[in-house]
């Protein structure tokens, strides 16, 4: 009786200790018996990265972040990572810190510098340290994009109300088309996130084209702004015309970004084409765009949207890859 009690207590005690030790090691990701190598990457700042975040190479989980420490001089951050000893580093390696998902978990990705040459990597003070770059937080961009999307929705609603004649119906149809296309684009981007990631290299080459297109678009928007302020209907019509052309350029740039988006951009093209037709009709004096100008609230929204679009474009220029990953409004 007393013996069996001793045996039971001993068994439970040992089982408890084993459970704690094994459980802790398991929750840390089974790193026992695996030979690890420690590598250090250097950053200017490390965003939301924490100890224990995964380290990936070509999308494969190969280790974890062990330690994050401020460099003695305070000019940089050293991130120590343990990775499997059998992992071979790519040629001229760099480390990118980025969000693994939208929910605050970050990751460190090891790449070859040739893959992302444009980023402004921190220089390692140690000979065997790896240069690193931390991608900016997406939340700000998301917020801007959301606000723009909201404003656009308001404007579309108002435009829906403002036009009652046949032209208005046409415009509404065109807007519906644009909305549908936007929806499709968003869905596509979400569904094809991985594909888009893969074509990010292609994107790097088209960044320049996009930047030019974006700049034109920005000019166009500011033209719209002044036109409305001056109440010059004719020039508005002209600008809308040019805007349509710029959007066409943008969408063809998107075609470069991803073959998979081809179908959708085609329908976008047709939507923009019908918008173009409507604008021509307006040009011939059919319809009453004047109604649009009488609504000062609408004007304000338009002006605000225009400036938000400019913000967005600036962000877009800085981080084209994150932007495409995130969403198309």
């Amino acid at each position: 009786m007393s013996m069996s009690n001793e045996v039971r207590v001993g068994a439970v005690l040992i089982a408890g200790i084993v459970l704690v030790v094994v459980g802790t090691i398991w929750l840390q990701g089974w790193r026992i018996g695996r030979e690890d190598q420690l590598v250090t990457a250097w950053f200017r700042e490390v965003g939301q990265v924490q100890r224990g975040n995964p380290v990936k190479l070509r999308g494969v989980h190969i280790g974890r972040i062990e330690e994050i420490s401020l460099d003695a001089g305070g000019s940089g951050v050293a991130v120590r990572m343990s990775i499997g000893s059998d992992v071979r580093m790519p040629e001229d390696p760099v480390v990118l810190l980025s969000m693994e998902s939208l929910f605050g978990d970050w990751q460190a990705e090891i790449h070859s510098r040739a893959r992302f040459p444009l980023y402004d990597y921190a220089v390692s003070p140690e000979p065997d340290g790896i240069p690193g770059y931390s991608l900016p937080d997406m939340s700000r961009l998301t917020a801007v994009a959301d606000r723009i999307a909201e404003n656009l929705a308001v404007i579309t609603d108002r435009v829906d109300i403002a036009f009652t004649d046949e032209t208005a119906l046409n415009i509404r149809e065109a807007i519906d088309n644009i909305q549908r296309v936007t929806g499709q684009l968003t869905a596509l981007v979400e569904a094809q996130e991985q594909t888009v990631r893969d074509v990010a290299v292609g994107l790097e080459t088209t960044t320049e084209t996009l930047q030019q297109a974006a700049l034109s678009a920005s000019r166009t928007f500011s033209l719209i702004e002044t036109a409305i302020a001056d109440g010059q209907l004719a020039s508005i019509v002209g600008n809308v015309d040019r805007l349509t052309a710029q959007i066409d350029t943008l969408s063809s740039a998107l075609v470069l970004v991803s073959r998979d988006m081809g179908g959708v951009t085609e329908s976008a093209d047709s939507a923009f084409a019908s918008l173009h037709a409507i604008v021509s009709a307006l040009d011939r004096g059919e319809g009453t765009l004047g109604l649009l100008l009488q609504d000062t609230a609408l004007y304000r929204d338009l002006a605000l949207t225009s400036s938000l679009v400019q913000d967005l474009i600036r962000d877009f220029q800085r981080n084209p890859r994150r932007y495409i990953n995130l969403r198309v409004f």
């Binding site: 704690v20 459980g23 802790t24 840390q28 990701g29 100890r51 224990g52 978990d105």
Partner: peptide, 15 residues
């Protein structure tokens, strides 16, 4: 998910 934010201190704290 279990491993995502796990640190061994969690176990120490619990005990």
């Amino acid at each position: 998910g279990l491993r995502l934010f796990f640190v061994p201190f969690d176990v120490t704290y619990s005990l």
